[in-house]
Structures are given as structure tokens and as C-alpha cells.
Design a protein around this nucleic acid. Structure first.
Lengths: 248, 248
DNA sequence: TAGTGGTCTAGACCACACA
DNA sequence: GTGTGGTCTAGACCACTAT
């Protein structure tokens, strides 16, 4: 037959919906504005609520929307750029980083992946420091920092100090070591219940997991696992602070 | 009443399911193995298929599973580490990078975000080169590289060459410029239909979007937007190649 | 053709925020 | 309370892959 190749591609409804909504967000809504509720929106577009939600989920994943139970769906501000290495080649806790120590954890289990990086055997003593990062008044990241106990012999292993004080002690002790190198990986993850609470999100929310390896004395002495909110954050890596500014 | 704080937290079914499945994957399944189909799994756990799917989606997001329509759900291999900056401070297309030019696009629209970085006005001529990155025989990333036309005056603007040839010409011309600086951002996105095809995924699949800005002659002359499969990739940033090896 | 995952529906109930 | 988003169900049909 002489028919040309028609659009035989049945675009899924939620995909088309997402496009429509995305355009509407650009042209008809201001940041912070509240959208109609899901039941109304679904009715307006003539789809089931589940289908509408599939579109909203995509938009939230892309940082365009923010949904809060009991409140509603609002138009999200542009993602905030967070510098991942503001001061190059320094230990965590160095002057000028905008992380805040929260506490230290006793006798928690070290994840297998981290144990591999640290080359520790099960049972080897490791300090675990919890830190939190706040930008523009919003929590953007939660971190667990694993430090080989033998690398910071000045730190009391037992509960001779309160948890927050011990966290600070470990960070201080780190600064005295020579940092020989570091490298990083970034991957997608989902927030554990713990992190989710710290980040003011629901468990399972998408996060960017940054794993940093710190090398000193010829071996990996510390590993930081930092969990950034993927919906609100854009990680910046740059040779200058220009990167962070530019991304905001 | 003297009751202690009981676990009043009703963990969602899909969340619990995810944990159970995750443990099962660790202990009872080998990489590449095919899981029972969704209807059987749902029946086995006594939940609706949609609920089971919610758990599978999370596991796929975390890179534990791979699902293919018409085939089934298989256990995914560990994420592959891909070095984002194998050779520091070089233009794209330099010897040794494992990107392959695909073609060049004529008269396509430059996204607003990219136009902002390049500081171009609408209508300013920009070369767009499409590239593709393959690791271990699998496509891991698709890229659109935007190059200010005025920065590479030796490249023919019109269709005097075939698209692939023009792509190579632009990359070659870039190498002759002095690269004064570069910086990067990483954020979560969802695959556009185009990228999805190149990455062998469905549209909307989660991707890590790496935006690289190249500075030369005092201004941003090129911007690369690289789209990595979030399910299979772990991006590595390091001072040495050790990072890539370590992450694999 | 048979079997898989992907999409979609029309409900229901729950957890949470706010007035 | 009232209204919001979050979870869950039990179906149906579609698009794709392999045989």
C-alpha cells in the first residue's frame, strides 16, 4: 500500500502526560506554587490516578516537582549546585567544609563494600562518624565516615566521651595525618530509612551516593559514603569555585 | 498505660519485599540467573502484582536486577566503574578516550541550559556532535557535544561532508585549541527517547547526566552533556587510574 | 503462539499535615 | 475533621521476545 510510515508508536499515556505537565510547569506555574491535587488532575486529563502518578513521579525524579504527604504537590526550585570537593585534597572535617559532625557510632557493622575498600577483616576496629550537610538552610546530604581505628590511635575507642565529642575527636585527629591521595565514585541509590529521615524524605527516595576513598601511609585509611538528595541536588566538580556558582 | 513503644511503624509491603528479595539475591541467586516471572513471584509472596513490581523497580534502580520485556528478570552483575575523566584536561576526542563519534546534527535546537552555559544568543551557530561510549561491549553512555562554531572556523557549517565525517572534523579541530579549564556537574535525569534507544533502555529510564564545560580563550567554547545508564554504571573520579580499577 | 514485562483502570484504605 | 499524597488490590490489555 502507498501509506507512509504512520506514527505506529503508541506513546504511553504517562509519558505524554509528563510532557504536557512539563510544558505547563514552564509556562503557567511559578516556583513554589501548589498544583491541583492528584484526583483532580487525573480527572482533568481523563486518566486513572495511578497513571497520573506515574507522570508525577518522573517529574519529581527530574527535580521539577516536590510532593509532600498531607500537603500537596508544589513546583520545585531549580536544583542547587553542591560542590563535592570544595577544598581539594583535604581530610573530611578540615576548616571550611560545610559538613557538621552529628555523632559517632559504636560497634556498628561495616558494609561489605566499605570493608573491601578499607581492606579490613571482620572485627577490625573502625570509627564511624555520622555527618550532615546543610546548604541554603536545607539538608542535602547525610554521610557515614569510616576511619581505621589504628590510623587515629589518639582517639578513645570506648565510650569515654559522648558520641558528638568523639566524632569531633576523630575528625581532629585525621587532620594530623598526611593525605596522600583520594578518589571518588558516584552512583545512584535509594535512601535507607535512616538517611531518609535525615534528608527529610521517604525511605527509598533516589539519592546520589558519593564514595570517597582517602589514602594515607600507603593504604586506604578512611572511606566516606555520602548520600545526596537526587531530587534537589546537582553535584559539582571543578577546578575552581566557579563551578558551584555556575550551577546554581 | 505501661506499654512500651511498640513498632507502630507499619513498614510498607513493597519495602519489606525488597529487603526479602535483596537477601535472596545475595544468598540464592547467581549473576545472570533468571527469576520467576512477576505473576508467580507476586502469588508466592501473597501480594498484588503491582506491589511486587514496586519492589522490583527499586532493586532495578539500585542495579541489582535487570528486566527485559518479553524475556524476564535477571540478576544484574555489579555496576561497572567508568572513568569520567580518564585523561585530565583534554578536549573530547583526544587520543585515548573511549568515546566514538556517531554523527553531527544540523540545525538542532540548543537546550536553554546549554545555551546559558555557552552564553549564546538564539540563532548563533553551534556544532552538535553525537558520541557514544561503549565499555565491556555494552553501551554505557550517549553524549551530545555542543561546540561554538566560531571557535572551530575550519569546520564546514553546511552539509559539504557526511554527518560522521563532520563530527570527526569538529573533534579534530578542537584539539588545536588551548584548553584553559573545565568543570563538571552530575545530576539525576531520565532518558529521553533518543538516548534511551542508544542506551538500549526504555524512555524514562534513570540516567546520570554529566555536564562538562570546556573553557578556552577566556570563555566557554564547548559543553558536553553525557547521559550514563544509572542502573549499570558507577562513575569514577580520581587522580589515578586506580579509581577505575578499584570500582570494578 | 506462548510467555514475559509494560501500561492502565477503578476502586479502597492508610498515614500525615493542617486548621 | 478534612484533604493531601502513599500504598495496595484484582483485574485487563498491550508490546515485545523467543520458539
Amino acid at each position: 500500500m502507498g501509506t507512509t510510515q504512520l506514527e505506529t508508536v503508541p506513546e504511553p499515556k504517562y509519558w505524554h502526560l509528563k510532557t504536557v505537565l512539563s510544558d505547563a510547569l514552564d509556562s503557567e506555574f511559578a516556583v513554589g506554587e501548589i498544583l491541583p491535587n492528584e484526583r483532580d488532575l487525573a480527572a482533568r486529563f481523563g486518566v486513572a490516578r495511578a497513571t497520573l502518578r506515574q507522570a508525577l513521579e518522573q517529574l519529581e525524579l527530574e527535580g521539577r516537582l516536590q510532593r509532600r504527604r498531607g500537603v500537596g504537590t508544589t513546583v520545585a526550585p531549580p536544583r542547587v549546585g553542591v560542590a563535592v570537593d570544595p577544598v581539594s585534597h583535604t581530610w573530611p572535617g578540615a576548616a571550611g567544609d560545610d559538613w557538621q559532625p552529628v555523632d559517632a557510632i559504636e560497634s556498628a557493622t561495616v558494609p561489605a563494600a566499605v570493608a573491601g575498600l578499607l581492606a579490613t577483616a571482620p572485627g577490625d576496629p573502625v570509627h564511624i562518624v555520622r555527618r550532615s550537610r546543610v546548604t541554603h538552610g536545607r539538608p542535602v546530604a547525610a554521610e557515614l565516615l569510616y576511619v581505621l581505628a589504628e590510623a587515629v590511635p589518639g582517639c578513645p575507642p570506648a565510650a569515654s566521651l559522648g558520641a558528638p565529642a568523639r566524632a569531633r575527636a576523630v575528625l581532629q585527629e585525621l587532620q594530623t595525618l598526611e593525605l596522600e591521595g583520594q578518589d571518588r565514585t558516584v552512583e545512584l541509590g535509594s535512601a535507607r530509612a535512616e538517611d531518609a529521615k535525615q534528608l527529610d524524605r521517604l525511605p527509598g527516595a533516589p539519592v546520589l551516593v558519593v564514595t570517597t576513598r582517602y589514602v594515607s601511609g600507603g593504604r586506604t585509611t578512611a572511606v566516606a559514603v555520602s548520600t545526596y538528595r537526587a531530587d534537589t541536588c546537582r553535584l559539582t566538580f571543578g577546578e575552581s569555585d566557579a563551578a558551584a556558582l555556575l550551577a546554581s
